[in-house]
Design a protein around this nucleic acid. Structure first.
Length: 492
RNA sequence: GGCGGCAUAGCCAAGUGGUAAGGCAAGGGUCUGCAAAACCCUCAUUCCCCGGUUCGAAUCCGGGUGCCGCCUCCA
């Protein structure tokens, strides 16, 4: 299958550019991971899901992707949080790394190929800082080391800001630090204070500043020049700007070919952030909604666009996932263990994959890809319920082909990773638990209704149906017997 | 103040010059003893407003209005 060219929006150029791997067939991507001082929130989850999907799609395209996502486990906020509850900072960080991994697993995020930690990259960090000092880009001052912003000509090329605006716009910010030559210079290395984690260095005991760790870790695992670098919008300045300055001043090379930034997840119209306190933890969300429904919800909006967290849209997402899984279940039932022989198939199953591919190749158009899924699943349902052709073998072959396409789409998007049966039952269990439905009573009622129907007592059968409906239980008579589901909470 | 983004149906959301994808909701129909599910049909002469360019604009240009973000820790 001939694929369309992949084009990616590059923040540096503020335009979509063709993705041309530095090494043909391979992609190195670095995504700024969490600072592990507490549980991640659903805004973090959205960004990580976006890049997770991007990595999956690139692999779907046959590219060999090396995916690096770090843990920032040495940081002011970690130290502060640790002091507040009398915990060792490194241990607190390790604890929240484990929590993050549990959340990531629950959300079906891919394990990155490398997940480096700052605490395990100290020698490399020191080496870069030494190099920067040797090159005259940085200077040591009383146990601290600072990057000298005005000596690096490319500073602010990513964020399109201007040095003088930064100074005048600084407001109440404490820009002036005696040791700095310029208020805008930023710390590469901070002299140790009592009670802080610290490491020996040529400048005495201390720890890395924010930013430098990413320069060191990306260079260590992807080299000094790699393909893609991702993170949330808010990292453009200062984090990525400073990363570029450090890395490029040290190596003399372009850090990465393309800078990608994910949009925010808003909560009631306002940006969600830990510092504002208006956060929904990923863990709590996962307790309420199916992980793939959450993922589907994330994918309903383009990754660079703002997304508003909404219960209504989340419920829609789950409804939609139910449709997908119900369809897959039906198709599996029809097709599993059967041989339909070889030959032609109805329609053009690959068309939907091509549509998905076209959408995703154009700067990872998630909603466009979801649109392709609609056609695919509609076709599957048509063939199972209202086949437009009589030839049963032909229908069977077509369903197999469509299911194959769905599997490939699943690989590219990270959806439908469960078995349909499991997913549907798990969803029902979750709803049953939430609503406190008595499953035994439901079964008894269904049996009673069955008896009434057998006796053609439809009045009684309908009464039972209505009674269950009042409990948000919907009865479904199928050729295979009577099953039931919980009705949607919003439409109930 | 500097920089950037967004405004498309009741709701969500693609689409960046060629005559408005998709989803949810809603209404009608097929199927069903009745339902559910599924399928079919309907649902924006119009894309925040005002000008302009063009044979042609939701898409480009100019000017407004509104919302949001970054410039300070933040995905």
């Amino acid at each position: 299958m001939a694929h369309p060219e992949i084009r990616v929006f590059n923040t540096m150029q503020q335009a979509k550019v063709p993705l041309t791997p530095i090494t043909p067939g391979k992609i190195g991507i670095y995504v700024c991971g969490p600072t592990v001082y507490s549980f991640v929130h659903i805004g973090n989850a959205r960004t990580f899901t976006s890049f997770d999907t991007i990595v999956r799609y690139l692999r779907f395209r046959g590219l060999e992707v090396r995916y690096v996502r770090n843990y920032t486990d040495v940081d002011d906020k970690i130290i502060k949080a640790a002091h507040e509850n009398g915990e060792d900072p490194i241990e607190l960080a390790a604890r929240f790394i484990r929590e993050f991994q549990a959340d990531a697993k629950a959300l079906h995020l891919l394990e990155p190929d490398v997940s480096p930690k700052v605490s395990e990259t100290i020698p490399e960090i020191i080496a870069i800082i030494e190099k920067l000092i040797a090159r005259g880009a940085a200077y040591a001052a009383g146990g601290d080391v600072y990057f000298e912003v005005r000596k690096y000509p490319g500073y602010l090329k990513l964020s399109k800001k201007h040095l003088d605006d930064l100074v005048s716009g600084a407001g109440e910010r404490e820009l002036v630090l005696e040791a700095k030559r310029d208020p805008l210079d930023f710390a590469l290395w901070k002299a140790a204070k009592p009670g802080e984690p610290s490491w020996d260095s040529p400048w005495g005991k201390g720890r890395p500043g924010w930013h430098i760790e990413c320069s060191a870790m990306s260079a260590k695992y992807l080299g000094e020049h790699f393909d893609l670098h991702g993170g949330g919008l808010d990292l453009i300045f200062p984090h990525h700007e400073n990363e570029i300055a450090q890395s490029e001043a040290a190596s003399g090379k372009t850090l990465c070919n393309c800078w990608m930034h994910g949009g925010f997840l808003d909560l009631e119209g306002a940006k969600m952030s830990k510092s504002l306190g208006n956060v929904v933890r990923l863990r709590d969300a996962l307790g309420q909604v199916d992980p793939e429904a959450l993922r589907y919800f994330f994918l309903t909006t383009h990754y660079r666009q703002a997304l508003s967290f909404s219960d209504k849209q989340l419920a829609d997402a789950e409804t939609r996932m139910e449709y997908f899984y119900e369809t897959l279940r039906k198709v599996d039932e029809r097709v599993t263990g059967k041989d339909f022989g070889k030959g032609a198939v109805h329609g053009e199953p690959e068309k939907f994959l091509r549509e998905l591919d076209e959408a995703m190749s154009d700067d990872f158009n998630f909603p466009g890809a979801l649109g392709a899924l609609s056609g695919l699943f509609n076709e599957m349902n048509q063939l199972t319920d209202k086949p437009p052709v009589k030839d049963k073998a032909l229908v069977g072959r077509s369903l197999v082909a469509l299911r194959d396409v769905a599997k490939k789409a699943s690989l590219a998007l990270g959806l439908f990773e469960d078995s349909p049966q499991d997913w549907l039952l798990r969803r029902r269990d979750r709803q049953v638990a939430r609503l406190g439905i008595d499953v035994k009573k439901v079964d008894e009622a269904i049996n009673a209704r069955h008896a009434a129907r057998a006796a053609k007592n439809f009045e009684e059968a309908d009464r039972i149906r209505a009674e269950l409906k009042g409990l948000r239980v919907e009865i479904m008579d199928t050729p295979a017997g009577t099953t039931w589901k919980v009705t949607s909470e919003l439409s109930a």
